[in-house]
Design a protein around this nucleic acid. Structure first.
Lengths: 199, 199
DNA sequence: CAGAATAGATCGAACGTTCATTCTAGTCGA
DNA sequence: TCGACTAGAATGAACGTTCGATCTATTCTG
């Protein structure tokens, strides 16, 4: 009958992400990266995405919501790259190095996404919640990177200082103009680890 | 006649920064920090600064130029704070610690300026030149913070890695939600120095 | 299977608003 | 009276959004 009869196509029909929707998100990401948050008009978006001005509002209730959707997409990519090759039973040192290298890879290979994020985070769109920690997976990863007296393996600096050292470091390293070899990245990460880990 | 006749006021006339001009710049900074680059209309700016819509264009040729002027102002403040108490004949370690603490102070005490900078740097206003190094003073300060084999005092990591470690670190430390005591900041800076300096 | 019906996707012109900028007329102190 | 200033109206461009029409594909009916 109906449900069973359409079995072949059922999967395709429920296709959450129509090609158009996808194209719109993609084009908006490009547009914002290229021309900035202001100066990313719907008219241009329409032209670039190959969608008409009207149909965009079929997929997204407003420009703001569209931008938020782009953000969610980018965030998903970021988290995926960051946690690649990580498992909960790694030793803290290895986890740290893995994370550092993943971070570096993300910043290097997803420049569009990074640039978008930088713009988004410093905008009134988000009320300053920088998307760290809000993800339960990320929280687990960071569990060990805390001062020893709180059960972690690091020197007894304030937790926030530890966070700044670990996160901010790789981040700014990756943002440098020049690219580094995987080996250099690893050496830098080791240097940092030596600086913050106990014994 | 004109120029000479106004002798009494000559100083004031040449006053680069009339009160009005100052008020406009100040209000624009506030406005952008509060409501973002987009959504900072001239009408609101006029109201806030106490200047009429028209006279703004007496001081600045366009909105873009006005924003650029705000940027120059902010940059000046930043450099002033950063170099406070620094002199060329300090030992590298002391210079580093001084710089770190100054950085921290700037990020903590000039939140508006920091927030504006973050927004400006990630916008098409500036073509990505992040305002470091372009200042000759800053260049001198950073002279010693280079790998040993290049005449500096730091470990033999790539120059760019060193830069990322030094600049990015204090920066992200200062951006943390919590405030730290001067002593903690110093301890963190020392930790970092231990990590990157030779011997 | 033919054909009517339905629902969703798509279009592009048009609307109403807001914005940066200009302009006019007037105020006030020197 | 002059020059710096004000309030605010006028302008034209650009913007986000809406709307009715059309087009497409699936489902229902017989």
């Amino acid at each position: 009958m109906l449900g069973a009869g359409a079995a072949d196509f059922a999967g395709d029909v429920r296709m959450e992400t129509s090609d158009k929707r996808e194209a719109i998100l993609e084009a908006m990401l490009d547009l914002i990266v290229e021309r900035g948050f202001h100066d990313a008009p719907m008219s241009v978006l329409a032209k670039r995405s190959g969608a008409s001005a009207g149909v965009i509002y079929h997929y997204f209730p407003s420009k703001d919501e569209l931008i938020r959707a782009v953000y969610e997409r980018v965030k998903a990519v970021k988290h995926e790259v960051l946690l690649k090759g990580y498992s909960q039973d790694m030793k803290p040192r290895e986890a740290f190095l893995q994370l550092a290298q993943n971070s570096y890879r993300f910043y290097r290979m997803h420049r569009r996404e990074v640039r978008f994020m930088d713009q988004y985070v410093n905008s009134p769109f988000c009320g300053d919640g920088t998307a760290w920690m809000e993800d339960p997976n990320a929280a687990k990863v960071l569990w060990w990177f805390r001062p020893k007296k709180k059960g972690g393996v690091l020197k007894d600096l304030p937790q926030e200082a530890i966070d700044a050292l670990t996160q901010g470091l790789v981040q700014s390293l990756a943002k440098a103009d020049k690219g580094f070899s995987a080996e250099t990245v690893r050496r830098v990460a080791e240097t940092v680890w030596e600086a913050i880990a106990v014994g």
